[in-house]
Design a binder for these strands. Structure first.
Lengths: 319, 319
DNA sequence: CCATTTATACTCTCCTTGAGCATAAGATGG
DNA sequence: CCATCTTATGCTCAAGGAGAGTATAAATGG
C-alpha cells in the first residue's frame, strides 16, 4: 500500500473473502499429567467458526468455550494465526484463517454432559517428557532417524548443518535439553518426514516416530501452545490457573514439572515461590497423604495487581 | 464443537465469510531513532488484503512488503490478529480480520521511488522515550490526568485499584519504569479516554495526551510491535537485523537504547555482547569519528545456528 | 522402635549483575 | 607541544541470585 495508500480504505474485495475459525488448546493438569481437550477421538483440537457477534476474538473464544464446556475459562491467550488453502487440499476451495488460542482450566471445572475428552499431551509428543530422564524413544528411535536424515543431505556441509540443528533442538551430543523448543522439534520432525502429518504419498513407508498424530495442522498448533505455556510459566504466575483453590507446594511443583516436562529442585522451587510471595498459607494442612503433612497454600491473587512481571536482561543504567 | 465434532469438517458456512488484511509494523533504526514505515501522511501503518496465492501468511507478508519497498525483509514475526466488526463502524458491513506482523529492516535498504515514509515511533508514543530521563510529558501531563481519572472511579477501592494500575504501568510513585509495558500503557490511556482514538462523541473536549494518533487500531498494533520488540531484544539477537553490515559497539548500543527507550551501562553492555560471542572484529576501525577510534564489528551469523537461545527461570534439577 | 516418605530449614559456593575506576587513543584549540 | 575533550576499552568489587547439598521434623505402616 505504500504506492497507493488510498486503496487501504476501499471496500474489501469480495474475491478476498475467507472463513475464520477458532482453534483452542485448552489445558488442564490432573494427577501430574497435562491434558488437552480434544474431539474426534483425540485426533483434533476443538474448533469452530468464529461468530462475529462478539466484540473481540478473545470474548468470542471465551463465550464459545464456555458454551461447549459449561464452565468459565481462566486464562486465555492468542497463539497464532494460520492461513490454509482450504482444508480439502483443493487450491480452489474457500480459504480459511485459523486463529488459535491457548486456554487454561481445570478438568473438574468442565461440566458434565459435555462431550469433552481430555488427552494427555505427551501422547502426542512422547519425546517431550523428560521427567523420568531422557525418554527412550528419543535415544532409541528419534535420534537415529534424525541422523539418517541428516546424512541424506546432498553435501557434507549441509549434512553437518542438519545434524547441528537436530542436536541443538533435541539436546543430542551431550547438549542441554531445552524444553521450550517444542515447536522447533515438531517442525524438524515434519521436515524430516518422520511424522504422519508430513506424509507424502511416495513416502508412506518412511520411518515414523512415536506419538499420536492429529488432523490438519492441529498437532502443530498444540506444539505452539505447549511451547508458549512452557515459556510463560517462567515469568508469569499462570500455573495457578491450573491448580485447585488450595494446594500443597509439592502439588504445585508437580504441576510445573508436568508442564515443563522436567524435574525441578524441590528446595529451590520453594524458595522461589516464597520469595516472590506468590502464595499464602491457608492455615490448614493437607489430609490423607503419605509422609509428613504439608501446609496448604492458596494463590495470592493480589500479586496480579501488585506486579507487572517482566524481567530485564539489558545492563540498564540508573543515571 | 465438543458436542458435535462432525460439524468440524463441514463446509464453511458462507455467512461466516470475512476479509483478511495484513498490517505491518516495519521497523528501522536510523541515527538513534527507531522508525516505522507509514502511509497516509503518517496516520496509518502499511496494510493490504491478503493474497491467498502464497503458501503461508509469512511468505505472503514477505512478498507483499518486498513488492512495496523494493527490498527483502530481514526478520519477520507475527504479532496479533484482530477482528473488527467492519472498519466503517456499521455492524452489518463485511467483517475483517487483521493479521499484524512485525518486520525489521534498514531504512537505506528500501528502494527509491517508493512511497515509503518513515516516522519516528516516539512521535506516536512520546512517553515511551526515557533515554534522557523521564519525559516531561509523563510527569507534567499524563500522570496528573491519570490521577484525575483514578479519582473519578465510583468507590475508594476502585480508585485505589485504578491508581495502582497507573502507577505500575507508568512507573509512578517511585516505581521502576518497565519499558516492556508499551501496550498496557496505551490501553490504559485508551481506557482513561486520554487519547483521540478512544474519543467518544460526548467527550470530544476530554483532556488529551501528547502523541500522534493513527487511524483505526493502528496505534494499538504499533504498541504491540514495540512491546514485542523491546522484549525480544533481550533474549534474541534481533538488533543486528537493524544494523549495517559493520558497526561499532557504541552504534550497536545506541540502537538497543533507541528501541528500549532507555540507556544502558556501556561497559556492561560490551561485556554482555562479548561473552555471548555475538560479534567478531572486522579488523577495520571506524573512520571520521570524534574521540578514540572504535573497532568495527560484524554480527556472527553463525550464532543463529549454534544456539537455541532461551533462558530458564525454573530451578531445574540435574538428576 | 524402625524404615519410609514427605516437609521444611539452612548452608555454601559459583556466577551474574550493577556500578564504578582507570587508562588508552584519537582530535582540537591555544 | 600541551591541556582538554571525547570515545574506547580493560579491570575490579560488592551484592544478589542460582544450583546443589545437608540436616532435621513429622507423619505412616510394619
Amino acid at each position: 500500500m505504500a504506492r497507493s495508500p488510498q486503496k487501504k480504505t476501499s471496500a474489501p474485495a469480495s474475491g478476498n473473502a475467507v472463513t475464520a475459525d477458532l482453534v483452542a488448546v485448552l489445558v488442564a493438569v490432573t494427577d501430574g499429567t497435562p491434558r488437552i481437550m480434544t474431539i474426534a477421538g483425540g485426533s483434533a483440537l476443538p474448533s469452530g467458526p468464529f461468530e462475529f457477534t462478539h466484540r473481540s476474538l478473545q470474548t468470542a473464544l471465551r463465550a464459545w468455550v464456555e458454551a461447549q464446556t459449561g464452565h468459565p475459562l481462566g486464562y486465555v491467550e492468542q497463539l497464532y494465526t494460520f492461513a490454509d488453502r482450504g482444508r480439502s487440499g483443493d487450491a480452489r476451495t474457500p480459504h480459511s484463517v485459523s486463529i488459535s488460542y491457548l486456554g487454561l482450566t481445570r478438568e473438574d471445572q468442565v461440566g458434565e454432559g459435555f462431550e469433552a475428552h481430555w488427552s494427555g499431551w505427551y501422547d502426542y509428543f512422547p519425546w517431550e517428557d523428560h521427567r523420568a530422564g531422557t525418554p527412550v524413544c528419543l535415544a532409541k528411535m528419534i535420534a537415529p532417524k534424525l541422523k539418517t536424515w541428516a546424512k541424506a543431505a546432498p553435501s557434507p556441509t549441509l549434512q553437518r548443518e542438519r545434524w547441528q540443528r537436530c542436536a541443538i533442538t533435541f539436546g543430542l551430543d551431550d547438549r542441554d535439553w531445552n524444553e521450550e523448543l517444542v515447536l522447533q522439534r515438531y517442525e524438524l520432525l515434519y521436515e524430516a518426514l518422520l511424522i504422519p502429518e508430513a506424509g507424502r504419498a511416495h513416502d508412506r513407508e518412511a520411518p515414523i516416530v512415536p506419538g499420536k498424530p492429529m488432523s490438519a495442522d492441529h498437532r502443530r498448533i498444540l506444539a505452539t501452545g505447549i511451547a508458549r505455556l512452557r515459556a510463560k510459566i517462567k515469568y508469569r504466575p499462570v500455573v495457578f490457573e491450573l491448580m485447585p483453590a488450595e494446594f500443597t507446594l509439592l502439588q504445585l511443583q508437580r504441576s510445573v514439572e508436568a508442564l515443563a516436562g522436567r524435574l525441578v529442585h524441590k528446595q529451590n522451587f520453594r524458595r522461589l515461590i516464597e520469595q516472590q510471595e506468590l502464595v499464602e498459607e491457608t492455615g490448614a494442612m493437607a489430609a490423607d497423604t503419605v509422609g509428613r503433612p504439608a501446609k496448604l497454600f492458596r494463590f495470592r491473587h493480589a500479586v496480579l495487581a501488585e506486579r507487572a512481571v517482566a524481567g530485564t536482561k539489558l545492563p540498564l543504567s540508573r543515571t
